[in-house]
Amino acid sequence: MAILLIAEHDNAALKSATLSTVTAATQIGGDIDLLIVGSGCSAVADSAASVPGIRKVLVADHAAYDHEIAENVAALIKEIAGEYSHILSPATTNGKNFMPRVAALLDVGQISEIISVESADTFQRPIYAGNAVATVQSLDDVKVITVRGTSFDPAATEGGSASVETLEQVSDTGLSRLVSEELAQSDRPELTTAKVIVAGGRGMGDKAHFEMLDTLADKLGAAVGATRAAVDAGFVANDYQIGQTGKVVAPELYIGVGLSGAIQHLAGMKDSKVIVAINKDEDAPIFQVADYGLVADLFDAVPELEKSL
């Protein structure tokens, strides 16, 4: 058995979601080859080679793979899929974009966002916004799988000595091209790996008031997240969204402010270790999952909390 794992990276290093996927691959068992695909991504190879448990690092560095254009990346993966029994990728927006394309090119299904490995062909995954957990057995020869990063501990980054191989073939379909990218700039920790998260909902009122959470987050060294309602209302950008269709987070401490706790939002944060809810509506569903609930006007409570830290 051999596993091909498609890395999520930023052209400098592997993202934490990749290391979590390595852990999932280790639980499946077999040789693990790590594919680094992108444009200007060769620098990732060295650090990737030192991840324990990797047999080979494959590097496909070409302009055709810039920003991991799905059509080209999927075509490349299909080319090299060969003898692999499993193809894994983190369930990031990149993985979610190209992996189903890979599955269809190989005429197999895809098992999306697994949260546990039961055996080499059986996995658990959340369905219905996490209100049910399905145990699913793959009947395909090749198992194409995306992995939820927060459900697996990240693998170590030192101690391994994989070989590095450069892939020469280029798959350029010419179907799509990048026009522009607007990436959020922030000195705060990344939402999906942050130890502490402060998240706000519609109750924040408006964009200016939402910024109150920034100050609190900075005091706590936290990332800032939001509900769909807050993003839709334009308080913050889409990359803040936590929930069924946004980001899934599992920090040590999650502080939800002015958010009711719709099931779609809970789907993205209920695995947090400690949940704090601040809301003036004592019947808000968020209190049903909160370890510590404070029924209070957030505009009094948040400044007070910030001062007492």
Binding site: A134, T135, V136, I275, E282, A290, G293, V295
Partner: peptide
């Protein structure tokens, strides 16, 4: 392409306390 072996409710979180 898959067989559904089992569907279970997720681990329930107990509500904590109000401060």
């Amino acid at each position: 392409h898959t067989r559904l072996l089992k569907v279970e409710p997720p681990a329930e979180r107990q509500a904590g306390i109000k401060v």
